[in-house]
């Protein structure tokens, strides 16, 4: 690249960089910074220490991690076959993609309210279960971890599907045919060719879904109960209800660290499954 093009390139990324630096990196740095100092201004890790001592926070932390991981896994399981079908076999690719993405067009608030209607004691799900006799009295699937997980999955499945389709579409059909001609069954081809080559999409999708679940606020707030708070709702509680911004910041930092750790963990696993990515 010549010098002039390089200069122009820098000029073009400058506005975006400035925006990110001033509205994201600087506040983030300040946020992290303040959690390590007490009122007197001397360095301390006490905030974190106390936070992790509290059983309440421990429960919230574990619950957040668990629900996010479960939702991510279910999104991957549900998303994989549908993405493969849409990417490889479907004649109505455009329409099916639109269907998959459609839930993203409504706000999480509205979607959560629909789930409240569906999952309530007198909701469709419970009525149906009782009619077919699977249960004699309504099971509780609202305002607990079940409804939150359902909400997360509906919220983030489209992200998983879109990431997977993007990668699967680029797997040449010849590779499947080559595997078949070498004696691989459909299942074998899937296991040895399609799956490993879809890993990059699975990684992107999982990171997006996991981060989404961990940081989502509306869905756990509306579909969870008071005894099933997660990190995101706790931050709100600390900051808005208790006015304790330092505590809120500490939780936020914990959240960032978890996201980074899990993302690199996912990356590590995928590298083992497909060494060339």
């Amino acid at each position: 690249m010549n010098k002039k093009a390089l200069t122009i390139g820098w000029l073009m990324v400058l506005p975006g960089c400035l925006f990110v630096v001033f509205f994201m990196l600087v506040p983030l740095f300040l946020l992290v910074f303040r959690t390590f100092f007490d009122e007197g201004g001397s360095f301390t890790l006490n905030g974190y220490w106390e936070m992790f001592q509290s059983t309440y926070f421990q429960q919230v932390f574990v619950r957040s991690l668990k629900l996010s991981l479960i939702s991510t896994a279910i999104c991957a399981l549900l998303g994989f076959p549908s993405s493969y079908y849409i990417a490889k076999y479907s004649r109505h690719k455009g329409m099916l993609m639109a269907f998959a993405v459609f839930p993203m067009f409504t706000s999480p608030v509205i979607r959560s309210f629909s789930w409240i209607v569906l999952l309530g004691k007198k909701g469709i799900v419970n009525s149906a279960l009782m009619t077919i006799g699977l249960t004699s009295k309504p099971i509780s699937i609202l305002y607990n971890e079940v409804s939150m997980t359902i909400g997360f999955i509906q919220l983030f499945l489209p992200l998983m599907i879109l990431s997977l389709i993007g990668v699967m579409e680029n797997i040449p059909e010849d590779l499947n045919l080559a595997a078949g001609s070498l004696g691989a069954t459909k299942l074998g081809t899937f296991r040895h060719v399609v799956l490993p080559l879809s890993i990059p999409g699975l990684v992107t999708g999982s990171v997006l879904v996991f981060t989404g679940c961990l940081t989502a606020y509306t869905t756990p707030q509306l579909l969870g109960g008071t005894d099933t708070r997660v990190l995101a709702t706790v931050i709100y509680q600390y900051a808005m209800s208790l006015g304790d911004w330092t505590q809120a910041s500490i939780v936020a930092v914990v959240m960032i660290v978890v996201t980074v750790c899990v993302s690199s963990g996912i990356n590590g696993i995928s590298r083992r499954l497909n060494p060339t990515i």
Binding site: P172, D174, A178, S181, G183, V193, L197
Partner: peptide, 14 residues
């Protein structure tokens, strides 16, 4: 049990 050689080679990249 037929061998096929593709114009694009179609080697498994991974």
């Amino acid at each position: 049990n037929f061998g096929f050689v593709f114009q694009s080679y179609a080697l498994f990249p991974h």
